[in-house]
Write a protein that binds this DNA or RNA. Structure first.
Lengths: 400, 400
DNA sequence: AGACTCCCCGGAAACGTTTACACATCTGGG
DNA sequence: CCCAGATGTGTAAACGTTTCCGGGGAGTCT
């Protein structure tokens, strides 16, 4: 009898400890502790024994048995970029509601790091991963399809890739900004972009050229500068551009670049927006912190994060789902940095005005269907200058 | 013979699969795969079999056996606050070098969430945790000592708490800022603080009053405003303060508050720093992004993060170490927002100047020993305006 | 009263690894 | 020639859970 455990006193209590103390089998103890089955008397004894020894189940052993870790990984280039912070918050919320925790990886935008992370999924240390790569290579795709746990991509992906992904139409987003600036009477729009060999950089470049072409405006290469997606690069790129051209507006590929550009503009004593209008992209928290506040194209980072997390959880629950693709429509949030008359007075100061892009078609549509979109004032709470514009969400390929 | 696995074809390959295919025992297979022992012939067979079936060891099973998860958790209030981003990056680096990954929890500064997180450590889903609580309660302490895995605290802790922790002397940090402002001729220093029932809020309040007292200046309660540690609160608190008093300087309990205050100042058309000098705390990335750039008291967040991670890994390796405490000395980084003549011209524009506080004694010393510290120009690379001032690090209690 | 159902319980097998231990074989030296 | 040691291998026991399955008891229906 009872020859199973030799010295049950050593180490932390396990199910065996509890079972022995309650005088029942480990099966009964486990059942009671999981709330399934058990006679009233057994339940009482086990509960009491567990309380007395301070039993807490071991998460790892449970994972081994249940084949799920309760973890979801997120891999982004730069956890300092507020756009990823917003995404992370949204993902965290969904994932926590699903009873899981979030493991965050910072890849530094490095392809090798990303691949290695995807490959490591083979160890199944997480239940799934959300990844937002700046560049996509064949190795990425191969690692994703080979992975034993599901992967969801935030960002553009080849149309035939059998991977869930949530995307936004950043070309249409750029078009919104260009339309807005042209409607405000600007004619020489400078463009501060990220590297063209990145997915977002390429899309923004294409969007910018297409938008100008649609308005019959020739592209002046002197008005285009390339850096990376960081603050310092934005600051430097703006300085280079201003040294050789006289833009009356600057469109920036993300908010960090825009804040850098704003710094250069102000330190060169150019008035914003009177002399140079400024528009960023991503509509991060940062856009509301600058003075003047930054107009910015929202690409729905929080929505994309939320949607990605939902897709991932659904796929974890049912791996046989067909590959799905979700879209989040961009919208423009207008603030003081691009409005000629300074901060609009009618609502509260710093109140945003939003313009929403029409829903994009399948894949990357060739051009933006609308001409200059009408501006619509959005109702918003006077307490917070946060935009309440809701980006449109669509899903295709799923059976919802 | 071979009656162990009934259908080895199903599911992903395990050690059993590899062993069977190589015609050896699982023990031999495991040994080869771990690189310990094995004859040349066995090694060849096992390697080949593993490659053929694409074997990857299961992280969970390995964890169960080895009693380590390879994960380290970090719990902070707000992953959007750049001070935590800096800390997180530093921790990530150390932890990755130690072959582990980082699990990030956002607590929202909520005590109940923090406690629940600490309690969950009993499940041993991570090898240890770094936590930076805004408030510390007895429940915190109890949960920490009870935890089966080590916990390191970033922030003040009762002196007798048997928990590793790394702290900075934020009172001395506040004193650095006050000294600087007084030396620059400011006399009516406004103070925008966080809640007084938080550890950092209380310390900053005490530091502010002590610094004024040391200079024989009476405290004017009209010049003190309380909000929380966020941007919006800073903006609102500055507006309230400016409505009832006429400060010639504003000292802010962190950079987010300072950026909010800057927004209010600029939108009320007060010139910074000519009319109102501005100093923040934490010296985050944000401080370099504003215009004018923000003077800020560095509390060495990256250093604290790094040190905390080191302490944690050391303790994981040797749980019997005595409780240790590490100190990081604050320093002041002077930028354009607090210098009367605008951006200092001598070095490159936006070049920081740093003043380092003397090493604090044990525990919270009653007052700051130095009078107005001398300003020392720091050499820095012309390319980046990042400060290179290194905060001093000390450890006590350990056997290093 | 017998058969049937339902519920509760305990033994044991899984999950996939590492490793203690025992055994066999081989080598070299006395 | 025989034994000590070294070396390689396989069996089985861990790590801590959940869960399948079969047995037994109590109750109900016919």
């Amino acid at each position: 009898m009872g020859r199973k455990r030799l010295q049950p006193a050593a180490g932390r209590p396990t199910v065996h400890t509890v079972a022995a103390r309650a005088g029942v089998s480990i099966a009964s103890a486990s059942r009671v502790l999981n709330g399934v089955g058990g006679s009233p008397e057994t339940i009482r004894k086990v509960r009491q024994a567990a309380a007395e020894v301070g039993y807490v189940p071991n998460a790892i052993a449970r994972s081994l048995q249940s084949q799920r870790t309760g973890l979801v990984a997120l891999a982004v280039a730069d956890i300092g970029n507020p756009v990823y912070v917003a995404m992370m918050r949204a993902i965290e919320a969904v994932v926590a509601a699903g009873g899981r925790q979030l493991l965050v990886h910072a890849t530094g935008g490095d392809v090798a790091t990303e691949i290695s992370l995807l490959r490591r999924l083979a160890h199944r240390y997480v239940d799934g991963m959300i990844v937002s790569p700046i560049r996509i290579t064949d190795s990425h795709l191969e690692a994703m399809v080979v992975s034993p746990v599901p992967v969801v991509v935030v960002g553009q992906l080849p149309d035939d890739a059998p991977v869930d992904n949530v995307r936004t139409d950043s070309r249409a987003g750029v078009a919104l900004a260009v339309d807005h600036l042209l409607a405000a009477g600007r004619r020489r729009i400078g463009f501060l972009n990220g590297p063209l060999d990145t997915v977002p950089g390429a899309a923004r470049d294409a969007g910018f050229r297409a938008a100008l072409a649609r308005h019959g405006i020739p592209v002046d290469e002197d008005l285009i500068e390339i850096g990376d997606f960081q603050y310092a690069a934005g600051r430097a790129a703006a300085a280079r551009l201003l040294a050789r051209a006289e833009p009356d507006a600057l469109l920036c590929a993300n908010d960090l670049i825009a804040v850098g550009a704003l710094h250069t503009l102000l330190s060169e004593e150019r008035r914003v927006p009177q002399e140079v209008a400024l528009v960023g992209m991503d509509d991060t928290e940062l856009a509301q912190m600058t003075f003047p506040q930054l107009s910015s194209v929202s690409l729905g980072s929080a929505d994309r994060g939320r949607r990605a997390a939902e897709l991932l959880l659904e796929r974890i629950a049912d791996p046989d789902l067909p590959p799905r693709r979700a879209h989040v429509a961009p919208s423009l949030v207008v603030r003081a940095s691009s409005i000629p008359g300074g901060t609009p007075r009618p609502p509260a100061p710093g109140q945003p005005t939003a313009v929403t892009a029409p829903e994009p078609g399948l894949g990357t549509s060739p051009a933006v269907p609308t001409a200059a979109a009408p501006m619509t004032a959005m109702p918003a709470s006077p307490a917070s200058p946060r935009t309440t514009s809701t980006a449109g969400l669509t899903t295709e390929g799923g059976t919802r």
